[in-house]
Every structure is written in structure tokens, then in C-alpha cells.
Simulated scan of single mutants.
Amino acid sequence: MAINDLLKQVLDFRDARDWHQFHTLRNLIVSTSIEAGELLETIQWKTDSEIEALLLDPTQRNNLKHECADVFIYLLLVAHTAGFDLLDAASEKLKLNAERYPVDKARGTAAKYSEL
């Protein structure tokens, strides 16, 4: 499915419920953060091996999938409300990160670009 088709589905869903009135940029950004917290909660207090096992459990994997979808949907709404294309923004950010983190300096290190 193309991202524009998904955005149309999200907007149709929202508009059918008259939720546009609540979808200010501020509220959408707050909601994105809340949903990201719920995504984080799926792995809270788990070791890396427990997280790997989570992926093998269909119920837990489905929960992870739905939490990711919630974050993604809110990000689509934030971008739409702010008037930019999320795919273009991601592509632009990747180019910026490529400049900030050149392979010869960043390979194998988790250091921030200002420390390279």
C-alpha cells in the first residue's frame, strides 16, 4: 500500500468520527509521545534475550506490531497537519545523517556526530 493511500484511510477514519477537532499539532505530538511510551512498555524490564523470545510469541509480536502502527499513524498525522511529506522528511534526514556520520568515522561506534 502506498503511504498516501494509508494517509487517506487514516484521515477518513478520523473524519468519520469527527476527531479532527482534537487533532491539533500539539495534541498529535503529545499523542505520538504517549504511543511511543506504550511501544517502550512492550520491552520494559526485559533482557535482550527476553525481547528476542517476545518476537516468537504471536500475541506479544502482534502487540508490538500494533504499538508500532499507533506511533506510525500519529507520525503521519503530525506530518500531514504540519504540512510536510513524512517520506521526504525521512529521506532528507538520512542524507543529513550521512554527512554527520561518515562511514570512515562512524563505523562500529555509537558516538554522537559531535564526538566523531
Rank of each mutant, 00 (worst) to 15 (best):
I3L: 14
N4V: 10
L7F: 07
K8M: 10
Q9P: 00
V10H: 07
L11A: 06
D12C: 07
D12Q: 11
D15T: 10
A16C: 07
A16K: 14
A16G: 11
W19V: 04
F22R: 11
L25E: 15
L28G: 06
L28F: 04
V30G: 02
S31Y: 01
I34G: 01
T42A: 03
I43G: 08
Q44R: 13
W45N: 12
S49A: 09
E50F: 03
E52M: 06
E52H: 01
E52K: 08
A53I: 00
A53R: 09
P58N: 01
P58T: 01
T59E: 09
N63D: 08
N63R: 07
K65P: 00
E67A: 03
E67S: 03
E67P: 01
D70W: 01
V71T: 02
Y74L: 13
Y74F: 15
V78E: 07
H80E: 15
T81R: 15
A82Y: 06
A82P: 02
A82F: 07
L87W: 04
D88E: 15
L96W: 05
R100H: 12
D104P: 02
K105M: 14
A110G: 13
K112N: 12
K112I: 10
K112M: 14
K112E: 13
Y113F: 15
Y113D: 10
S114V: 10
L116K: 10
